[in-house]
Amino acid sequence: MKLDIIRATCGYGKKKVAENISLSVQSGEVLCLLGPNGVGKTTLFKSILGFLRLMDGEIVLNGENMIKMSKSKLAKVVGYVPQAHTPPFPYTVLDVVLMGRTAHLGMFSSPTDNDRRIAEEALDTLGISFLKDKIYTEISGGERQMTLIARALTQEPDILIMDEPTSNLDFGNQIRVLERINMLSKKGLAVIMTSHFPNHVFLCSTKVALMTKNLFKVGSVDEIVTEENLRSAYGINVKITSTVDESGNIIKACIPLIN
């Protein structure tokens, strides 16, 4: 599985938001998109998901031009995890997760026992089987984010696209979501996610894309997340430091400095 974005320009109507973007992701990689507010991360995501038409360039999925793929074919390859939100109706968690099966169902069908089994497996993989019969609108933000990840897994995709999966979550839930992301990428999924936390990149990413108003850089974590790059992207002073965990791995972290 491989996703290539080749010299893509995206935007709304005639307004270009991000220009000349190239990157590629394949199975087992976690690409994290960093960048300040308003540089077009969401716009780029919407283009990858096919909500917006590319103004230039192309997106190629396993050698096939993505624009030509039908919505249901795309949904079998690309799973989207939006930011947790509240829908208007009080579905159960299992109902929500089952909606991930939509692309696999015929025009007039509804989920079968087999679909239900796949949905329950996804809940199991993420360790949230206990949520199954809970009401989606009544569970916590972290649980809702996990449910949406389970829904995306139920699509049985090759790529997960996650829009700020750790925003609005408490400290523990942020890390638990990152753990799941690591686990999923080890299982062979490719993950593209946005984040506002450079520290999270050190914890789970294999690749980083840094997006600023006039610059787009892709590379390994150590190449991209440097004091200088963060300073120029976010306009603040940052120190990068490191510590050693119990098994002797070096873990980096950024510390913002206040003048």
Partner: peptide, 18 residues
Amino acid sequence: WKINVLSFGDEEAKSLGI
């Protein structure tokens, strides 16, 4: 059954293959 998916909004329904 598909109307369920639609109630999650246009973009999510699209990303789920509708």
